[in-house]
C-alpha cells in the first residue's frame, strides 16, 4: 500500500455503499478502494448503515419451498475461489472490465502522444483510461458535471498539488484545471465524467467531440 494523500469524499463512498452511483463512478470507487485501506474502512462504515437498515426491515413472506430451491441452486453453483493477491498495475475491478492489465488496453491515440480507451458509457456518464506521456499537459478544461480522476501509474500535478498512484481528484463545475504529467514516468489515470468537459481555447473545443470526453 502506498501512502495516499488525496482521498475520496464521503458522499461518493456512501453513494457506492447504497448502490446509487452510475457504473462509471462505481468502477472508479471500487478501484480506489482496492488501493486505499482508508477508503475501504470508511466504505465499510457506510455499509454498516445498510446492514442496520436491512436488519430492521419488517420480514416479508417467502416462498414455501424457498429453502429447498436455494439448496438446489447451491448444488448447481461452482464454489467461489478465494481471492489471490493481485499483481500488476490494475486492481481487479479495473482488470475485469479491461480484460487484463495495462498491456491489454485498446488505446486510441488522441494526439501529442496521449492515448485513451473508453471502458463504459451510459447516459452521458463515461469511464475511460487516459495515458499522458511524462511531462506533458492535458488540455486545460472546466467541467459541466463531475469528474473523478484516479491515478494508477506515474503522477500528475495541477493547482491542488501532486497526485500519484491511488490518489483521487474529484472536480466539479467550479474547477478549471490543467493537469500536467510529472516528468520521469508516463501517467495512466482512470477517469469518470458525468457530463461533457468544457475545454478552454478553440482547438481543444474542436477536438472535444473527437475525444469523446
Amino acid at each position: 500500500m502506498t501512502a495516499i494523500r488525496h482521498h475520496i469524499p464521503d458522499d461518493l463512498l456512501m453513494g457506492y455503499a447504497a448502490g446509487a452511483l452510475p457504473q462509471a463512478f462505481d468502477l472508479v470507487v471500487a478501484t480506489h478502494v482496492s488501493l486505499s485501506d482508508d477508503a475501504r474502512a470508511r466504505l465499510a462504515g457506510f455499509e454498516e448503515v445498510g446492514g442496520a437498515v436491512l436488519s430492521d426491515l419488517e420480514e416479508c413472506e417467502i416462498g414455501e419451498d424457498s429453502l429447498q430451491q436455494t439448496l438446489a441452486k447451491i448444488a448447481s453453483m461452482a464454489p467461489t475461489p478465494r481471492a489471490k493477491p493481485s499483481k500488476g498495475v490494475f486492481p481487479k475491478p479495473l482488470r475485469d472490465i479491461v480484460g487484463g492489465d495495462e498491456d491489454a488496453v485498446k488505446w486510441k491515440s488522441v494526439g501529442m502522444g496521449a492515448k485513451q480507451a473508453v471502458l463504459c458509457s451510459e447516459d452521458g456518464v463515461t469511464a475511460r483510461l487516459l495515458y499522458i506521456p511524462a511531462g506533458q499537459a492535458m488540455p486545460q478544461h472546466g467541467h459541466n458535471g463531475m469528474e473523478m480522476t484516479l491515478v494508477l501509474k506515474g503522477a500528475f500535478r495541477d493547482e491542488d498539488g501532486v497526485y500519484a498512484r491511488g490518489d483521487i481528484e474529484v472536480a466539479n463545475q467550479d474547477v478549471d484545471h490543467q493537469p500536467i504529467a510529472e516528468p520521469g514516468e508516463d501517467c495512466i489515470c482512470l477517469i469518470a465524467t458525468d457530463a461533457k468537459l468544457r475545454f478552454q481555447g478553440l482547438l481543444p473545443r474542436i477536438a472535444q467531440p473527437f475525444l469523446g470526453i
Binding site: M14, G15, A18, G19, A20, L21, G45, V53
Partner: peptide
C-alpha cells in the same frame, strides 16, 4: 439504501456516529 435517492441527493453527513466504527 433502497436506491430511491440519486447520488446528488445523498448527503453523507448522516448525523450518525460513523467515526469510531471506521
Amino acid at each position: 439504501y433502497f436506491g430511491d435517492l440519486t447520488h446528488s441527493e445523498i448527503a453523507a453527513e448522516t448525523g450518525l456516529p460513523l467515526g469510531t466504527i471506521k
